[in-house]
Simulated scan of single mutants.
Amino acid sequence: MRNVTLTDVFTHPIAQKYLGRSGIAHAVSVAHHAFRLALEYEVNPDLATKAALLHDVGHYEWYTNGQWDYEKYRENDIHAIKGAERAHKLLIRLGEDPASAKEMALAVLLHTDSYLPEGHLDKNNLQKVVRLADEADEEPGGNHHYRKMDYDLALRKIQALDQKVADVLKKDQGYKKSS
């Protein structure tokens, strides 16, 4: 049973605020990639798609003289840390199972290593899926954050993905609650 659907997350005003900053088209695309990868990695697609949708909600807008400054972003950004906090808070507010909310927040936290010190970190499959889904949609210079998608189209894509997740979960009751 799902406490919170992908549609619940997407339509929440807090999600809309932060998805608008980081790019709705990118978030929706990454959620779709995560669904495909979740099946491949045998990860709960409900957790994977919601974490993927929220992976960039921690973005801060880095500008210099009124222009987006990609280099400043790359040098200073820690969006995954803030995003994990925002995702966790939103998921809990919506009524998500606390353990699942924590798992998704950790996947958001670890979807990039741009802020981590050098070294190796073993990630679980949910964390790998979210990272790979994000990488599958990246464009040079951060351009993936600037693709546009109409809200109604994005909502229809999210609702269709929500139905795919529900169908998989109904068909395969073997998915663990977590990753």
Rank of each mutant, 00 (worst) to 15 (best):
M1L: 09
R2I: 03
N3Q: 15
T5N: 11
T5L: 09
T7H: 03
T7G: 11
T7V: 09
D8N: 15
D8Y: 07
F10V: 02
T11D: 05
H12A: 08
I14R: 06
A15R: 00
Y18E: 08
L19H: 06
L19P: 02
G20K: 13
R21E: 07
G23H: 03
G23Y: 04
A31M: 02
A31L: 01
H32M: 10
A34G: 13
F35P: 01
F35N: 07
R36F: 06
A38F: 01
L39W: 02
Y41E: 12
V43S: 07
V43R: 00
P45A: 07
P45C: 12
D46L: 08
K50G: 00
K50I: 13
A51S: 08
L54R: 00
H55S: 01
H55T: 01
D56I: 00
H59K: 10
Y60N: 07
Y60S: 08
Y63C: 01
Y63T: 08
G66N: 04
G66C: 09
W68N: 04
W68Q: 14
D69N: 15
E71Y: 01
R74P: 02
H79V: 01
I81E: 14
K82N: 10
G83L: 00
A84G: 07
A84R: 00
E85I: 11
H88W: 04
H88F: 08
H88Y: 13
L90N: 02
L90G: 00
R93K: 13
D97G: 06
P98I: 04
P98A: 15
P98F: 05
A99I: 10
A105D: 01
A105Q: 08
H111R: 05
H111V: 05
P117D: 10
P117S: 14
E118Q: 15
G119P: 01
G119T: 04
H120Q: 06
D122M: 07
K123F: 08
K123M: 15
L126F: 06
L126I: 09
L126S: 03
L126D: 01
Q127C: 00
Q127Y: 01
V129M: 06
V129Y: 06
V130I: 10
V130K: 03
R131M: 14
L132D: 07
D134C: 10
D137Q: 12
E139G: 04
E139C: 07
P140R: 06
G141F: 12
G142V: 06
G142D: 09
Y146R: 15
M149N: 09
D150Q: 11
D150K: 09
Y151F: 15
Y151N: 10
D152S: 12
L153C: 06
A154L: 08
A154M: 12
R156V: 11
R156N: 14
K157W: 07
K157E: 15
K157T: 14
I158D: 00
Q159N: 06
Q159K: 13
Q159V: 11
A160I: 02
K164L: 14
V165C: 10
V165Q: 02
A166T: 12
D167A: 12
D167E: 14
D167T: 13
V168E: 11
L169W: 12
K170I: 13
K170A: 13
K171V: 05
K171S: 14
Q173F: 08
Q173Y: 11
G174P: 03
K176V: 06
K176M: 14
K177R: 15
S178Q: 14
